[in-house]
């Protein structure tokens, strides 16, 4: 009885009604994914500062809009704040020799205090679309999707152009092969700092946009941003590679990374629609990311491992006995 009632309550229409909001949010997380892609894939650094900078972007944006700033200008300042936070992580890593992952954790931890301070020592600051002109809002979902798509397209175009320049190439070379980069006169440390700054700037911008979409900034809004960002990067790359295989160029790759955020949020909306306990969403995400990160390693192991070699040797021995 209960089961039938449960299934009857799941109307496709209610899912359809949910999707647009999911897509709008997904686009914003797609921007986060683009930022994470720079450090995780291009620089080969897992940068955890983004958990802090996403909220920094939100905090800066909300306070500036409350102070009467234009929302676009507020987001531009948020981007700047993210850049600075990224520089801090970069200097902790390159100047002080702190491992990149720890440098990111330190910045993130320090940002918690700073974010609270920015938000006037309050854990939550609201900015109502009724009182202020905002870039987008969950109240106007279709419009928000359009703004989201335009923003994502602009960022992809900018990143595509930048990573084709001399400096962008130097950053990619640094992430790929440090010895090669050094031998060709590239200042490796500088490139790492620039990459980290750029990544965190983009993530802070996404935080500023998210704040306007949801109508508030919250001290915990960045929690797990790195995991969701990674999930989006991985989901997008897997789907893109499945569809385009070797024709997957850099522009397509960036597009799919951003789409990864949208797909992730569509899945989230389905989970919500199924009335599953959202408390387990974080665990689900972590499991998905762990699986996708493990796949390349497991594939390699399935081709060649001691276990397999041992089995082959055993089989050859057994065959010898039978003959």
């Amino acid at each position: 009885m209960d089961i039938t009632a449960y299934f009857q309550s799941l109307t496709p229409l209610s899912l359809l009604n949910r999707l647009p909001a999911g897509i709008a949010q997904g686009l914003i997380w797609g921007i986060v994914a683009l930022g994470v892609y720079i450090t995780f894939r291009l620089l080969d650094i897992a940068d955890l500062s983004v958990d802090g900078t996403f909220c920094t972007g939100g905090a800066v944006t909300v306070m500036l809009i409350l102070a009467g700033w234009n929302p676009y200008a507020a987001v531009a300042v948020a981007l700047l704040a993210g850049l600075i936070a990224g520089v801090v992580t970069g200097l902790l890593h390159t100047l002080l020799g702190i491992p990149a992952i720890l440098a990111g954790i330190l910045t993130q931890y320090a940002l918690y205090s700073l974010n609270l301070a920015i938000m006037d020592m309050k854990a939550n600051q609201a900015v109502s679309v009724d009182k202020f002109v905002l870039m987008l809002s969950s109240r106007y979902v279709t419009y928000s999707i359009i703004v989201g798509v335009v923003l994502v397209a602009l960022i992809i175009a900018a990143l595509y152009l930048y990573f084709g320049t001399e400096q962008g190439s130097a950053i990619r070379a640094t992430g790929c092969n440090q010895q090669m980069a050094g031998a060709n006169g590239i200042n490796i440390n500088l490139m790492k700092v620039i990459g980290l700054a750029l990544s965190n700037g983009i993530v802070a911008l996404a935080g500023g946009v998210m704040t306007q979409f949801q109508g508030y900034a919250d001290i915990n809004m960045g929690r797990g941003a790195i995991v969701i960002g990674l999930a989006a990067v991985i989901i997008g790359e897997v789907i893109g590679e499945a569809l385009f295989r070797k024709r997957m160029n850099f522009a397509l790759r960036l597009t799919f990374v951003a789409l990864g955020g949208v797909i992730y949020y569509i899945v989230v909306e389905i989970v919500l629609w199924l009335k599953l306990d959202t408390n387990f969403l974080k665990m689900l995400t972590a499991v998905i990311v762990a699986i996708f990160l493990a796949v390349p390693y497991l594939q390699k192991m399935s081709r060649s491992s001691f276990k397999k070699a041992g089995k082959n040797a055993q089989r050859a021995q057994d065959d010898g006995k039978e003959v």
């Binding site: 130097a170 092969n177 090669m180």
Partner: peptide, 24 residues
């Protein structure tokens, strides 16, 4: 001596700019 994930021409262009500042 080379960056594996980059193209041949990109590698050569990086080498051609050895010792010069890398403009964005």
């Amino acid at each position: 001596g080379t960056a594996a994930t980059m193209q041949i021409e990109e590698n050569m262009a990086l080498a051609l700019r050895r010792g010069r500042s890398r403009s964005p």
